[in-house]
Design a protein around this nucleic acid. Sequence first.
DNA 1: CGTAGTCAAGTCAGA
DNA 2: TCTGACTTGACTACG
Length: 298
Amino acid sequence: MKIGYPCINRSIGCSSGRTFRLASYSRERLEETLSKNLRCLDAILRFNLASDILFFRITSDLVPFASHPVCTAPWRETFSETFSEIGRFIREHDMRISMHPDQFVIINAKDPEIIDRSLAELRYHAAVLDALHLDATAKIQIHVGGIYGDRKASMERFCREYARLDESILRRLVIENDDPRYTLADCLAIHKETAIPVLFDSLHHQVNSSGETVTEAVELCSATWGPEDGIPMVDYSTQMPKARKGRHTESLDGAAFAQFLGETAPTDMDIMLEIKDKEKSALAAVEIARSDRRFLPR
DNA sequence: CGTAGTCAAGTCAGA
DNA sequence: TCTGACTTGACTACG
């Protein structure tokens, strides 16, 4: 079991997702920004290693405008050595990596232009993981997409579009149950049709439940991951007290996390903490997991 | 220098 | 009809 956090490290004073306005795009600006972003990604991974945080989600903003037509700079070639070095570090230390494209990636859209833009964005995410020379255990997680007034038809459209994806995307893609739309049961139904692995999100399941207990949910999801996919990934968060439903908490609730570990103990998984204070909660979670001999070795 | 307005992209609920 | 939320605020024009 590995524990991680997404995209941003608040302790080390750099960002691996620096960007700029589309209006100020230039090849020089892109290369300057990407160079800084990669240097910061390297710093974050070194920080993580020193803290036994071996799971990390790389920000989608690593290469600004990568899937936009304006971006014609050959960044894969220009930075191939840097990507390779960072990838070597990740593999040497047996780290787990994921990416999570944002809400604009919608495989089941009705508008073909939205599908095209989504495909370009997925190709970009796959290109980053490929440039790092990571195997198929480095995943790209997306949601099922829109409902468009007909859940069943929209799920079928997802399955149809999924079947047409390039292998470079297919081998990495997983779906996650979301908060306002597709439940865990919906995702498992899509898995039956497509064999796509299902990533369990604990807070979304709490807010938009299809009835399974956490123990059941994690077991069901785990069964959708094949050997080449690696250990199942799970997104873990709890509700921010008194806030809008589905809002992530500011900091880790240690007791709730310990209970989650207990409920899911039979299933090995890599846990992504979607909590606002990021690495701080990940550090606390590593200590909690360590204090229980069933989980992390000292 | 500080800060308010704005930023590539989609969906959908709620005001 | 518009705004906010979503994995995450941060860039930059303007005073």
